[in-house]
Nucleic acid binder design. Structure first.
Lengths: 337, 337
DNA sequence: CTGAAAGCGCTAACAG
DNA sequence: CTGTTAGCGCTTTCAG
């Protein structure tokens, strides 16, 4: 089943390859009658354009690379879904690269994608600092948008959730439902999710209780750390545990329940991201829902802009406001009592 | 920053493009001295081969398409991770397509990938029946391996977990820990996960209790169904609820706990797949762990074989045996009593 | 409006 | 061992 080429279609429709190309690409006006003949011939032969040839000629592959730290991070599948859908809708294909949280592997994957002539790159950097060089080098060669995380200022366009706004929503909600002794279980590091959420808690929790900003424990973004943090913080008897992400919150909730604490009667627990597990815990975990579809839409819009004719312009850093999803883990204490 | 081509390297190293090509591709013997000069020139100019040109010439893009129903299905991220790693290790790139569980979208994505001249396709079909035509058509054009699910006999090579073996492990474990009144919460449909697990329960549970095969409720693979099923089955007071996947098991566990049942003291709960949430439930859910890394390795091996020189041979259907992961949800009753 | 022809960057005969 | 040459399939001047 030899592939059908433009020449075959040209022969079958009795005109030149140039004409066929013009008809099929709609590049230039073509006689209505010729056009019909060409289309008929193409259809009957089952012609399919060869993207490789097109890419060579046009210097554009219609492909974007999506580089992410770990597809198994439960927050990413939803993002990947929205991104691929948005890009497919524009006729682009997505080359996926998982880096296993390793900046070295990340640099290799980015190199490979550039070699494959992706038109643009969407990157969720693995590490705030160690991803920087590879990302900056790539951004010098193709349009690049940073997603979810950044890697230092001035590297590339970026789109992410407004972590401060999200944390503020949590604190407001806790205040409104009568909590007065919050504590925070966060993560070390300078990545935006860690640093910004930490800072927002520090800035906002003082309104509930002057000592609240100090009731903070830092570890990593894991269930195990959430469990461990409870053992450090519970003796201070907080009435709310604000967690930097949902995995931590799941660990916190589990450990509190093991210790016999009443959630939410005695203590509320909140997360961040709204991964699927957050809704499945019992009670469901109140959390900050990232606007995943919008993040994806904005990222692709930014890319499309950079790929367009007037793609110049200053670097952009976009922050999208999240929503609060209230579930059982933070139900007002008196409702339950 | 004009791209550096073979010609530039040839000029810089004082030899022909053919020679440069041979050095860089290692296709044919080349003088050691020339080779060194070429490599030096390539490095200093920052030469990067143009994959599009190569693809056009070689009629191979070094790319495989990965088509899956829903990346947000919690079992797939781990599989995608292993697949991309395995393929990257062979120097291939992965074009990802998410179909949103829609066979029509799936057919479109497959068409697009074929147009982009993927060398091969890895497909997790969305629907046993309605995916069949598109998959069969694609399989006629490029090597194609079906993963996790099949879509009718004789369509293409396939790799999947041995569902019957997994279910047998569960039943053996329940028998060994003294359970005698199991019931089954499964899913309708003819997809392998649904049908084979259902059949294996029907075949194996009779050994525990002659009436066991009849204590079966069928819905879909969701948490909501798991919850609903409990309301239908609990009055029969089974001492074990065997679920067709982990999502169902999570729903079952939640609902049982809400009804005040003691898990595992009074009733055991088991799942299938070992998605991350299974380990995070409280108690952890005993489940059948799919050999994800091996599934990915076998699938890529099969593809590599088909892409190789001697890629002919009969169609292959490979079944991999899973492991049982015992967690708290099925701890022996007397241990707890 | 249409055709002829020149490549995009690379590889593989085919000669030397 | 190395250079010359002819395309892979497509788009795009440039003529007509």
């Amino acid at each position: 089943m030899a592939d059908v080429t433009l020449r075959d279609v040209a022969r079958a429709s009795g005109c030149s390859v140039a004409t066929v190309s013009r008809v099929l690409a709609g590049t230039r006006p073509v006689g209505a009658d010729t056009a019909r003949r060409v289309r008929a011939a193409a259809a009957s032969l089952g012609y399919r354009p060869n993207h490789a040839a097109r890419a060579l000629r046009n210097r554009a592959t219609g492909t974007v690379g999506l580089v992410l730290p770990q597809i198994t991070n439960p927050f990413y599948p939803a993002l990947v879904r929205e991104l691929t859908h948005a890009l497919h809708a524009e006729g682009r294909a997505v080359l996926l690269a998982d880096c296993d949280d390793d900046p070295v592997a990340e640099a290799e994957r980015i190199e490979d994608l550039l070699g494959r002539r992706v038109d643009a790159l969407l990157v969720i950097p693995a590490d705030e600092r160690r991803s920087r060089d590879a990302v900056a080098a790539a951004a010098a060669r193709v349009p690049l948008v940073l997603l979810d995380r950044r890697c230092g200022p001035g590297v590339a366009d970026s789109v992410a959730v407004d972590n401060a706004a999200g944390m503020a929503l949590v604190l407001e909600h806790l205040a409104a439902t009568g909590r007065r002794r919050p504590c925070f279980v966060g993560a070390h590091g300078t990545a935006s999710a860690a640093a910004e959420r930490r800072a927002a808690y520090a800035a906002g929790s003082g309104a509930l209780d002057a000592a609240a900003p100090e009731r903070t424990a830092l570890g990593d973004f894991s269930v195990a750390w959430g469990r461990a943090a409870v053992d450090a913080l519970w003796e201070a008897r907080p009435d709310a545990v604000v967690c930097a992400n949902d995995l931590i919150a799941i660990g916190v909730l589990q450990r509190l329940q093991e210790l016999g604490a009443d959630v939410p009667g005695e203590v509320a627990v909140t997360g961040f991201d709204d991964i699927p597990m957050a809704g499945l815990a019992a009670p469901g975990i109140t959390t900050v829902r990232q606007p995943v579809a919008e993040l994806a839409a904005e990222a692709t819009r930014l890319l499309a802009h950079r790929l367009g004719a007037d793609g110049a312009g200053p670097q952009r850093a976009l922050r999208l406001a999240p929503d609060l999803v209230v579930r059982g883990s933070s139900a007002a204490p008196h409702v339950r009592a």
